[in-house]
Amino acid sequence: MPNNSSDTIPSDSSASQPAIEVRSLHKSFGSLSVLRDVSLSVGEGEVVSVIGPSGSGKSTLARCICRLEEINSGEIYLYGKRTDRSSHSNRDIARLVGMIFQQFNLFPHLSVLDNLTLSPIRILGLSREDAVENAMALLKRVGLEEKRNARPSELSGGQCQRVAIARALAMNPKIMLFDEPTSALDPELVGEVLDVIAGLVDSGMTMMIITHEMMFAKEVSDRVLFMADGNIVEQGHPKKIFSCPEVPRTRLFLQRLLVHFGKELTEGDEKEACRYDA
């Protein structure tokens, strides 16, 4: 099971070391405590979805893992290397973790191709030819080869997010973090982005997906975390979380969602075995 509380500091040699290990993470913005003692372990190749109400600290957790936020206390290990201190350059972190933002954050002054090749050339030291070849393969993977010379302003939101995913993959990271990747998209564009993410899941990449797309989370995840008030309230197999959550807070959250999404979320999953007494 993930989230074991072994005291051994992960070492580089261990084959079973988790891809992401977070220990007793605290993060606050001024007097606002956003993450309160969060511990988490994500195994190599594991796909973890994080759900929960807004303000629960989901995004902050992802932003701490890729070091966009400095943490107040606790420890973060990526493949056994402690990364929450400034001894790691942006480059070191980027080779381990790719991050996808809600607002895509493509570089508007660069073509799609240049968005993908800038970092591999400038940071990884690839030749332009190699970087372009690699980028074209990735654009093909997200179905946007023909947009290589387009500017981000000429793309739809869904296309932008697919380019952003390709751009993150161009750094060849071991872990991908998705911070509400479809929340800024028009409903009809959500599917194309989820398809690309699902394709990544199939490729066996370690992933952490913060999402409000419950059906998607249920389908692709190995594990679902429910966060509220800066804590991981409950976690487990998606079927368990969505069908028979144990914690009242989780149940409340999912019940509110069910009002909007109908019953499909829980249908067909050993529903008989669940007895709510709420």
């Binding site: 966009l68 942006n90 480059r91 991050m99 933002f101 954050n105 508007p108 800038l118 970092s119 400038r122």
Partner: peptide, 27 residues
């Protein structure tokens, strides 16, 4: 220049100076 440009540059491994040179100043 939006803050997201800095963040995207950072997670793509760009240093402060490279972010300035290739991403922020051109915009």
């Amino acid at each position: 220049v939006p803050k997201g440009q800095w963040e995207a540059s950072k997670v793509l491994g760009l240093s402060y100076l490279k972010t300035m040179r290739f991403i922020i100043l051109p915009q």
